[in-house]
Write a protein that binds this DNA or RNA. Structure first.
Lengths: 109, 109
DNA sequence: TAGACTAGTTTGCATTACAGACTAGTATGT
DNA sequence: ACATACTAGTCTGTAATGCAAACTAGTCTA
């Protein structure tokens, strides 16, 4: 009989946490998008205090993961980038926070 | 009058979170050390399911941050490495979890 | 038409996390 | 005696990451 894989505690599952969401800067971005439904680049830039380059690369990463939608358009000749959560992203964020809350309840300290 | 720096929400502080603790593998390691007071390399290896190389480098990182103490000794001709939290490490872990709990309470979802 | 501003993207770099190869010695089997 | 397996780690190589500064492209203003 092959030894059954030991049942992992909630705590041990932390190593499998979604790294895309776990990164603090992205968690912050996702938190904003989760509540506002749609935001532009500058709004996020101000709220997060990230640099432009950094914000841009995090958004690209989130897009590649299928978590945010990046829509570029012009408003009176000025380019505007609109960001919004995808259904996937909404789910991922929710899963992540659910998991983390559980973990922190189990955690000592 | 110089504009006062906007008061950051609890949420925004997440970007300043202690990255040494935030890394899932290390959070797991610290959680074990927080409760057992002292553990050896193999114990952590089994509990965490990390590879040896990975565990080793995480421990070195924690040591460099001043969070864990690495004591090497021989027990009946067999080398044994004992790990324990330093006072600093205990404090850092506690601060981290306190901060994260607050953040997750504020978080939507 | 020069300078400043808006709105980002691209590039370069230093740091990470991770696993696999390697070291060094002990215990066991034949 | 010699090989194999185990204990206990460390060292090395690599791909990915996060970050900021430099750059692009166009608009507005004095």
């Amino acid at each position: 009989m092959v030894p059954k894989k030991k049942e992992a505690h909630e705590l041990q599952k932390i190593v499998d946490i979604d790294r895309v969401v776990h990164e603090p800067a992205r968690l912050l971005i996702l938190s904003y998008l989760y509540v506002v439904e749609s935001a532009d680049f500058l709004f996020l830039l101000r709220q997060t205090n990230l640099t432009k380059g950094n914000l841009s690369s995090h958004l690209m990463k989130l897009e590649k993961a299928g978590y945010v939608n990046i829509e570029k358009k012009f408003v009176e000749k000025i380019p505007r980038t609109l960001l919004s959560l995808t259904k996937e992203g909404r789910k991922a964020f929710h899963e992540y926070t659910k998991r983390m809350k559980k973990i922190f309840m189990e955690l000592p300290g």
